[in-house]
């Protein structure tokens, strides 16, 4: 295995594009090293991105949002007051990944590129309409977060392409987001079900909403029907029950070692309502 330490994204891209065998980019390494140890993925070329200037920075964008460098760890996210104030749901999703030790290393980009449908940080990003800045041999492009995973362990990124940053839009007034997951223990598990809700209020009514669900389908789902269920409502009981029904209807879960399909279908409805209530309160709505 060759270990590379490029100092620019262009250099990183060039190394990857020229590599013949299995290539992995290394940011936090909390998935790459596990796969390496298990022997499931032994890269021929491992490209460490942490020495590229700016990769550990969280910077405001011209549009009023945030640009999160590819190597920003979960712990860094949690310490950033501005980001936590704007996008608490995104931050709490990332903060649920692993332990404090893992938080010291793990990154949003890594969680996204691992391609897991149970990735805790991704539903929040999807609900937030986050975008991804990609560098490749053909230059830079931007994609929506939900378009990156191509299935378990796979992404749509072309050979030589890599993520440079994750971009969150401006929070704007009267907005709130939240992410909840279900795990059997209190920590250290992979999500059995995850639900993120991002919404904006007009008065006490939901004016905009995005709902994303994790671990209930082969990919993380953006569920417009679930968002529609609460649009125009004050998130009252009937809106919540419609939300739960829409989430359950959208779920296409399987039974595996972490939980049953029936459980996931039901609990996704429970969690999406709990998350919606938190997001609603964070947006300034009265508690329901």
């Amino acid at each position: 295995m060759n270990y590379h330490r490029p100092t620019s994204f262009e250099q990183a891209s060039a190394i990857a594009a020229a590599a013949a065998g299995v290539t992995r980019f290394l940011a936090g390494g909390t998935d790459v090293l596990v796969q390496l140890r298990a022997g499931t993925v032994t890269p021929d070329d491992l490209i460490d991105l942490k020495h590229i200037p700016g990769v550990k920075e969280i910077a405001p964008t011209a549009e009023g949002g945030w640009r999160i460098g590819v190597a920003v760890s979960g712990a860094d996210l949690g310490r950033h007051a501005g980001l936590c104030a704007d996008w608490p749901g995104v931050v709490e999703g990332m903060r649920l990944v692993g332990s404090i030790q893992v938080q010291g290393r793990a990154t949003l980009a890594g969680n996204l590129c691992n391609g897991s449908a149970a990735a805790d940080s991704v539903p929040g990003l999807v609900a937030a309409a986050a975008r991804v800045s990609v560098v490749g041999p053909q230059g830079r492009r931007e994609l929506a977060v939900e378009d990156i995973p191509a299935g378990p362990g796979r992404t749509v990124l072309a050979p030589g392409e890599l993520i440079a940053a994750i971009i969150l839009p401006a929070r704007g007034a009267r907005g709130g987001d939240a992410y909840l997951r279900f795990i059997p223990r209190t920590e250290m598990d992979i999500a059995v079900v995850g639900a993120a809700v991002n919404l904006r209020l007009d008065g006490d009514r939901v004016a905009e909403a995005r709902v994303a669900l994790g671990a209930v389908a082969p990919r993380i789902l953006l569920v417009p029907e679930a968002a529609d269920a609460i649009l125009g409502t004050p998130l009252d009981a009937s809106a919540l029950s419609a939300l739960a029904a829409a989430a359950t209807a959208a779920a296409r879960p399987i039974t595996d070692r972490r939980g049953t399909a029936e459980f996931r279908r039901e609990v996704v409805g429970v969690l999406v309502c709990r998350a919606a209530r938190i997001a609603y309160q964070r947006a300034g709505g009265a508690a329901t």
Binding site: L26, T30, L33, V34, Q101
Partner: peptide, 8 residues
Amino acid sequence: LVCSCLVL
């Protein structure tokens, strides 16, 4: 704080 098994 990190797990040294997850750092090369």
